[in-house]
């Protein structure tokens, strides 16, 4: 027994010393090596949010966030299909990431200070700038969120949505009744059945959920956006290499759009004289190696899923069922705020 305690104390002491030196656990550090060894990326996804992350009847996943998972898989393996998806309800997602059940969480997750600092997680990029909105039935005759005094509101638990809702109604001195559900299915069904006057989530989620309504045209989205929701991929804290890889995946997809590198022309673009394109596609420098991949990592990505603009258009853009305008998510030189740090 005393031996055991002694070894425990020793281990604890070593652990403390380790922590003091800024070292982290081995398991957290080796995500890329682990993914390479498994041969696929385990990606935390939505349980089902059309346009962002949803499986079809055959279990094939598609969506904006799903394509980010595929882009990372393509960068690592040269094959966008080497991904397995774990559907996660909002309230379960961080535990799944912390415990190592998934390698990366790409599931319309808002970056907040507490999530970044107390959950042992990092959020290396923002792939969609969003804000929270409300949807109501047209026949209620409500034109503004300020008119929702006394309303009953359906929302999903374990989200920033729940918190913004409380802030907004308290701040505007309005009363409301909240009904919170664990999954988006349950939440929306309750709203659609008439349990609530309003349904609230990120504006992107509203576009998507409205498609599920028994009569989508009976519902309107109110003009107020009550919060800032920078949505982005999350990783475990303490594995800077993996965080870098995820961050630069996003930057590379943006840079590809900025310089007109598309799924269709990426092979010709490799021969381009533009130094920015050369660095992006690995014709110059060894940027791929610096994140543990090969030179042509970005070529593989764009070939697999296209650039940021293509991913947006295909899944949620004006040509898709969701018909979302680029808005804030346009490139910085096109009126938006998507601004990638340069590869150099």
């Amino acid at each position: 027994m005393s031996k055991r305690i002694a070894s425990l104390a020793l281990a604890m002491g070593l652990g403390l010393v380790g922590a003091g030196l800024g070292a982290t656990t081995a398991s957290a550090q080796a995500t890329l090596a682990n993914v390479k060894q498994k041969g696929f990326l385990q990606c935390g996804a939505n349980t089902g949010l059309a346009g962002f992350g949803v499986p079809d009847a055959q279990g094939n996943w598609s969506g904006f966030d799903v394509d980010y998972c595929r882009a990372i898989a393509a960068a690592i393996f040269g094959d966008p299909t080497k991904v397995r998806f774990t559907p996660l309800a909002a309230k379960d997602r961080f535990t799944a990431l912390q415990s190592g059940e998934v390698d990366v969480l790409i599931r319309n997750t808002t970056v907040t200070m507490s999530r970044d600092t107390t959950l042992g997680l990092d959020f290396p990029a923002v792939n969609y700038y969003d804000g929270q909105g409300f949807m109501v039935r047209k026949k209620l005759g409500v034109a503004s969120a300020k008119e929702l005094n006394g309303a009953s509101i359906c929302t999903q638990q374990g989200t920033t949505t729940e918190l913004n809702l409380a802030d907004y109604f308290r701040g505007n001195n309005l009363k409301y009744e909240v009904v919170a559900f664990a999954t988006s299915d349950e939440t929306f069904k309750a709203y659609d059945t008439g349990r609530c006057d309003a349904f609230t989530t990120d504006a992107s989620g509203l576009y998507s959920e409205r498609l599920r309504a028994s009569a989508p045209d009976d519902h309107i989205v109110l003009p107020e956006i009550i919060s800032k929701e920078p949505l982005g991929p999350g990783v475990r804290q303490g594995d800077p290499q993996w965080a870098d890889l995820v961050r630069w995946t996003h930057n590379a997809l943006l840079i590809a759009e900025e310089f007109g590198v598309t799924k269709a022309n990426v092979d010709q673009m490799v021969k381009s004289d533009n130094p920015e394109i050369k660095r992006l596609l690995g014709a110059e420098g060894s940027y791929g190696e610096s994140i543990g991949l090969t030179k042509d990592w970005a070529v593989r990505m764009v070939k697999g899923v296209g650039n940021y603009g293509e991913i947006f258009e295909r899944n949620i853009g004006e040509g898709s069922r969701l018909k979302i305008k680029r808005g804030l998510n346009a490139l910085w030189n096109k009126g938006g705020i998507q601004f990638a740090a340069p590869i150099r």
């Binding site: 309230k91 535990t95 107390t118 638990q157 374990g158 918190l163 664990a182």
Partner: peptide
């Protein structure tokens, strides 16, 4: 379970 294991756990981690 809904309140404590759901929202509280999610927010505090």
């Amino acid at each position: 379970v809904q309140v404590f294991m759901g929202t509280v756990l999610n927010q505090t981690g």
